[in-house]
Design a protein around this nucleic acid. Structure first.
Lengths: 139, 139
DNA sequence: CTTGACCTGCGAGCTACTCGCAGGTTTATT
DNA sequence: AATAAACCTGCGAGTAGCTCGCAGGTCAAG
């Protein structure tokens, strides 16, 4: 666990894209020191940080949220209160998104179903595509 | 219907943000001619186009999809075959997104529920946030 | 000492807007 | 007619979270 990995190695270890790791470094979520060749080196602390980031991401936190939690911990404060607040907000947002996405799927299914009984339109200059412009999804 | 509206007027008419209209102009979805003062003017054709765009958007087509459909119609071909193909793909993608989002909401709800019985952690240097790093969401 | 495989950080691009801004247009007031 | 205020314009840049491409650096083998 005291090994110091390079970007590609740590990415393989966590089974993620190396570019994702580079992205987290770029935006400051990770701060791996550089070696003599100028390559980023991920020690145990940075590896733990990355593990934390991936866990938090799985729970719907944004990268900015995660940055805040890491900052809390660095400054010796418990990140838990923030985590509890944040997940409540993110959960609510996720539910809203879920609802609107479900509504979209519903609209799409109704449209495809209705389109089965409608022939293709010939371009007549009056409409662009009567399938899409039709009234069948406004009722 | 033969009125020629400016950006803000047409936006109000369709109840959308004027910047959205400008965006569509910028990416070429709309091609309103300019008047003597250099302002975009939306005639009946452009207004119909915008209406079509909004309808298609409601059905889950991407702006690129919509561009293709408009191109079909401009070239005198029926856009319907493309529309049928596209909506099938977009529907499938929307369903996948819906499933993963539902799974996320499920994980978040389980986590918040589990966290109710766990006190805040004090920073001890061993972990970053035991709520997030805990095993309760990997089981 | 050179070939080649592998790796690096960084710039730019992706979706569909949304915001801010310098500056042009129009209208009301002096 | 001049001017100030209100309104509107197009365009540059920013948003989330990656993902890709690329010029160039590193390193072991021959």
């Amino acid at each position: 666990m005291n090994t110091s990995l390079r970007v590609n190695e740590v990415a393989r270890h966590f089974d993620i894209n190396a570019n994702t790791v580079r992205h987290y470094v770029r935006i400051g979520l990770l701060n791996p020191p550089k070696d003599d060749s100028g390559y980023h080196r991920f020690n145990a602390t940075q590896q733990q940080r990355l593990g934390f980031i991936l866990n938090a991401r799985e729970l719907g936190f944004t990268l900015e949220d995660i940055q805040q939690l890491l900052l809390d911990a660095e400054q010796g404060e418990s990140p838990c209160p923030h985590a509890r607040e944040m997940i409540e907000l993110r959960l609510q947002q996720a539910k809203e998104k879920l609802a609107s996405l479900a509504a979209l799927v519903e609209r799409m299914e109704q449209a495809t179903s209705a389109w089965k009984n409608i022939p293709d339109c010939e371009p007549c200059g009056e409409h662009i595509c009567h399938l899409i412009e039709g009234k069948h999804h406004s009722a």
